Amino acid sequence: MTKQNQIFALLKSIAFIASYLIFGAILAQLKPFFPPQYERYAQGLVGTAGVMLTVGLFLKLEKKSLRDYGLNWEKSTFSKFSIGLLLGIVLAGGMLFSQISFSDLELVLNDEVSLFPFLLWSLAFVPLAFMEEVAFRSYPLLKLNQAFGFRITQIILAILFAVYHMLMMWTPEASLLGPGIWALAYALAAVRSGGIALPTGLHFGLNFVQSVIGGQKGIDPIWTLDYPANVSESAIEANNQFGIGLHILLLICCIIATEVYVRKQKA
Rank of each mutant, 00 (worst) to 15 (best):
I7D: 08
S13H: 07
F16R: 00
Y20F: 00
L21G: 02
I22E: 08
A28R: 06
Q29N: 03
K31W: 04
Q37D: 13
E39A: 11
R40N: 14
Q43A: 12
G44N: 02
G44D: 02
T48E: 13
T48A: 13
G50E: 08
G50H: 07
L53Q: 00
L57P: 11
F58L: 03
L61S: 15
K63F: 09
R67V: 09
D68C: 13
D68H: 14
D68R: 07
Y69M: 11
L71H: 15
K80I: 10
S82W: 12
L85R: 05
L87E: 06
A92L: 11
F97E: 08
D104K: 11
V108T: 15
L115T: 11
F116E: 01
L123E: 00
L123I: 07
F125P: 03
P127W: 01
A135F: 04
R137P: 02
L141Y: 01
K143Y: 02
F148E: 01
R151C: 01
A158F: 03
H165Q: 10
L167M: 09
M168I: 09
P172I: 14
A174W: 09
A187H: 00
L188E: 03
L188A: 08
V191I: 13
G194P: 03
G195L: 01
L198C: 12
G201T: 06
L202E: 06
V212G: 06
G215Q: 09
K217S: 15
W223H: 07
L225H: 14
D226S: 15
Y227K: 05
Y227T: 09
P228L: 05
S232V: 07
N239P: 06
H247L: 14
L250F: 08
I255Y: 09
E259Q: 12
E259F: 04
